[in-house]
Write a protein that binds this DNA or RNA. Structure first.
Lengths: 152, 152
DNA sequence: TGACTCATGTCAGGATTCTGACATAGATTG
DNA sequence: CAATCTATGTCAGAATCCTGACATGAGTCA
């Protein structure tokens, strides 16, 4: 049924290909994360906290590409399960700095191994130079997209 | 608050960058599509039908990276609004081949212009050679990811 | 021919996410 | 110092999407 006969235009669209890669990567990550009782958003949140301790809810949301509201319910779950801690009262302003607990750090380690294996597999067909070039080009694309629609 | 001081590891992850580009691209597309009363999934569906007329619900779902169920409700809406047509009964098997109406084709044309402008902007900082190289590398990544987790 | 497998369309239910809105704290500006 | 603006955390509601399940039709194979 899936005859990719005529070379259609979508096959030449970088935007479509980007979505394809992103989708495949997410699927692969979910697969290796599921046995660990984790998903991509959870992992992203933990990884962000490991690299930048004390991040606020809003900052975590931006880093994981979800809304503040969604990240908040995730953080409540992570806090309830003992993976992260937040002070009961904001030390300054309304920002509640979040930190990983030893349990959270331990859980993240396993997940990081799994995720890294996926990324290694994804890049297995590319040389170091090709990886660097792709990285640079993707970064340029982001910059071009952002400068086009500056909100304020 | 957003001090990107220490060069953290996420800044070097191609997977994270991929998600960043994909997110920025989707946001940009939604922005230019909204004034036309359309969204990315709708556009993807119409574009797929323009390039491969007669596609089934399941095939459209795979092409737009959603489930059959989600695509079905979208198709019902598109059919109700007169953008696509489906035979009342399946000519063969259970597959209902979907086709664009003149109205659907007309609506797609405007959307295509808008979307293409976004893609052009995204690629404005890259030479033809760099675009081709990125395309080739992304395709390799997909292949590597897929061969890792072959279902059956 | 009959059993088996696979894919499709569809229904119901639940889970997840987002949009909209509010009060509050800090920064900015006159 | 007072007014304004921006950003944060949070609440409620709605919209979206997915998971699970079912019956049906086509292809395969003994």
């Amino acid at each position: 049924m899936s005859q990719d006969g005529a070379g259609v235009d979508l096959d030449k669209s970088l935007g479509y290909l980007l979505k394809e890669v992103s989708s495949a990567l997410r699927t692969a990550m979910e697969e290796v994360l599921r046995p660990l009782g984790m998903n991509v958003t959870r992992y992203s949140c933990l990884e962000l906290l490991a690299q930048r301790p004390g991040l606020s809810n809003s900052e975590l949301a931006r880093g994981a590409f979800v809304t503040r509201q969604s990240m908040n319910v995730l953080l409540q779950a992570l806090e309830r399960e003992g993976y992260v801690t937040r002070p009961a009262e904001a030390p300054v302003g309304k920002v509640l700095p979040t930190r990983l607990t030893p349990l959270g750090r331990q859980s993240l380690e396993k997940a990081t191994v799994a995720v890294r294996s996926v990324e290694v597999r994804m890049l297995s067909g590319l040389t170091e130079t090709e990886q660097a070039g792709t990285f640079r080009n993707l970064r340029r694309m982001i910059d071009s997209l952002r400068e086009g629609s500056e909100g304020s």
